[in-house]
Simulated assay, not measured.
Amino acid sequence: MSPKPKIPKEEGEPKKSLASTRGALTRSFKERDGLGAYTHDPAAFPGSRVIYYNDDFVAINDLYPKSTVHVLLLPRTPLSRLHPFDAFDNPSLLASVQAETAKLKHLVATELQRRYGRFSAQDREREAILNGEKEWEAGKELPVGRDWEKELLVGVHAHPSMNDLHVHILAPDMVSECMRHRKHYTSFNTPFLVDIADFPLAKDDPRRHPRNAEYHQRDLICWRCGKNFLNKFKQLKEHLVEEFEEWKKE
C-alpha cells in the first residue's frame, strides 16, 4: 500500500463558518460575560444582531429587548471591564462614549420615525410629503417632524447585570415579551438608569449607592400617564400596550 499524500494544513482543514465561530464565542463568553463575544469578534454575528462596529465600539440590538427598539453600545477597551462609574472617571473614555452614544441615538430615533412616523400627528406633514400626498419644492428640506430622539431612554445601570460596560438606548414604551417582571421595568424607569449625559457623577451622588434607594421596591408608575399600579406588574404591562398605541399617535 502506497503512503497517503500529505495534505497541506490550510487545504486539509475545513474553513470555519460564521455559525461555528459564533457558537465558539458564545461558549467562551458565558452568562455575565456574554457581551464580550460581540466586542471580541463582531463580524461573526449577523446584521440583525450587530448594527455596526469600528475599532472602538460595537452597537448591537439587545438580545432581550425591554422595548420595541432597544440597542446597546459596547466600548472596545480594557476599561470596559470596570464598573461604569469607575470607567467613566476616565475623561477620555467618557468623552468618546458620550460622542458615540449621540451618533447611535440618532440612528435609533431614525428607526423609530421609520416604524411609527406614519401614526404620529407631529410627523403627519413629513409623511404626506414622503408618500407623495403633498407637493414639496424640489431641493427644499423636509419638515423635521417629531423629535423622537429626545424621548429615548439612555444610560447605564447603577448595578449592571453584565460584566462588560454597555450603554442602553431604547424607546420609552417598555412593550416587549422580554419584560417579564417588575425589576425589568424599574431598571429603566427609576434613577437606577443613569443617563450618560449625567457623567461624571459627583462622589456623593446617591445613585452611586442604588441599594440604599431600593429602586426596585418602588411603586410601579406608568412612564407616560403617571398612573400608580403599586406592585401589580401584570396590570401595568397590559396598560403599557394601550399607552404604546397612544404614544405613537402623539
Results as ranks from 00 to 15, higher is better:
2 S>P: 14
2 S>M: 02
3 P>L: 07
4 K>T: 05
6 K>N: 10
7 I>R: 06
9 K>T: 07
14 P>V: 08
17 S>P: 13
17 S>W: 13
22 R>V: 03
24 A>G: 12
26 T>P: 00
26 T>K: 10
27 R>N: 14
27 R>F: 08
31 E>Q: 13
36 G>M: 04
38 Y>M: 04
39 T>L: 05
40 H>P: 09
41 D>L: 08
43 A>Q: 15
44 A>L: 06
45 F>R: 05
48 S>N: 13
53 Y>G: 01
54 N>W: 08
55 D>M: 03
59 A>M: 14
65 P>G: 07
65 P>M: 11
66 K>D: 15
67 S>T: 06
67 S>W: 10
68 T>C: 11
70 H>S: 04
73 L>C: 02
74 L>Q: 04
80 S>Y: 00
84 P>V: 13
85 F>R: 06
85 F>C: 09
87 A>G: 09
90 N>E: 12
95 A>G: 06
96 S>C: 03
96 S>G: 04
98 Q>P: 09
99 A>H: 05
101 T>V: 14
102 A>T: 14
103 K>P: 00
103 K>W: 00
106 H>E: 04
107 L>F: 07
108 V>M: 04
109 A>P: 01
111 E>V: 00
113 Q>W: 00
114 R>Y: 09
117 G>Q: 13
118 R>P: 03
118 R>I: 07
120 S>W: 10
120 S>P: 01
121 A>Y: 10
122 Q>N: 14
123 D>H: 12
125 E>H: 07
128 A>H: 09
133 E>H: 15
135 E>V: 11
136 W>M: 05
137 E>I: 13
137 E>N: 11
139 G>V: 06
141 E>S: 12
141 E>W: 05
143 P>W: 09
148 W>E: 02
150 K>N: 14
151 E>I: 01
155 G>A: 04
162 M>W: 07
162 M>T: 04
164 D>F: 06
167 V>I: 13
168 H>R: 11
169 I>G: 09
169 I>D: 03
170 L>R: 04
173 D>W: 00
175 V>G: 02
175 V>K: 07
176 S>F: 12
181 H>E: 09
183 K>Y: 08
184 H>Y: 11
185 Y>R: 01
194 V>W: 00
197 A>Y: 02
197 A>V: 09
199 F>D: 01
202 A>C: 04
206 P>G: 15
208 R>G: 07
209 H>I: 04
211 R>V: 15
212 N>S: 12
215 Y>D: 06
215 Y>H: 11
216 H>G: 05
217 Q>H: 11
218 R>P: 00
219 D>P: 07
237 K>D: 04
238 E>R: 02
245 E>K: 14
245 E>S: 10
247 W>Q: 03
247 W>I: 12
248 K>S: 08
249 K>Y: 13
249 K>A: 12
249 K>L: 11
